[in-house]
Design a protein around this nucleic acid. Structure first.
Length: 201
DNA sequence: GCCTCGATTGACT
DNA sequence: GTCAATCGAGGCA
């Protein structure tokens, strides 16, 4: 199993959103299968933060492919996204749901269920917050001799074990974006068919 | 400065 | 089905 490189994310956003299904989001010693994603694609997508141009909040969406974009919504929920396509093209994939894979993770912890079946629930479960905003999700090659190390963080994405069949992938409209005229009906959400951790079937 | 609203969730009628 | 939580970004004065 191999960590996805930056070039994986430097491809069309809809492609990346589909190809992330079945890949593994790894947080320290814990591993989760990605089962639901959404694409936010380009400057014209009215559902995307980037449709109003570059701002202090959304500037990360214009950054390098493979950059982590985390923002706060409703004053309390963090959303995890990975930036796609080349620098200055604003696009990202929202990770909406993951399935816990490691042993002993589907049980009760701290008097509550570990819930990862929704974009805000998974960031809460995995303790992902704005400190990840702007960091790379891809591996950084080490600086050569003088040991000027890059900042460490234990969040990355590994490739699938095996390809998904097209019949295992469902295309659907995105959630919570009814305000996006002309874009709300685009089927830019992808999920693994019949997976019980998908937020909205 | 002031107002509106959100890529959501959980509690409640 | 309805609605509050909770706060920063963005728009506008």
């Amino acid at each position: 199993m191999k960590i996805l490189s930056q070039s994986f994310y430097n491809r069309p956003t809809l492609r990346v959103a589909q190809d992330l299904l079945g890949c593994f989001l790894v947080r320290g010693a814990k591993k989760y299968k990605i089962v639901e994603t959404e694409a936010y694609n380009g400057p014209n997508d009215l559902a995307s933060h980037a449709s109003i141009g570059r701002t202090e909040r959304n500037k990360i969406m214009f950054d390098e492919p493979g950059t982590i974009y985390v923002y706060l919504t409703y004053g309390m929920h963090y959303m995890l996204n990975i930036v796609t396509e080349e620098r200055d093209y604003p696009a990202a994939v929202l990770i909406r749901a993951v399935e816990p894979i490691s042993r002993n993770m589907q049980h009760i912890t701290h008097n509550t269920f570990l819930k990862t079946n929704g974009p805000a629930k998974l960031t809460k479960s995995l303790k992902i917050d704005k400190t990840f905003n702007g960091l790379p999700i891809y591996p950084i090659r080490k600086k050569s001799s003088n040991g000027a190390s890059t900042k460490k963080h234990n969040l990355w994405i590994e490739s699938r074990k095996e390809e998904l069949k097209p019949s295992q992938i469902v295309r659907a409209t995105r959630v919570g974006i009814d305000y996006a005229k002309g874009y709300k009906d685009k089927k830019w959400r992808f999920y693994i068919k019949e997976n019980k951790f998908v937020s909205v079937q």
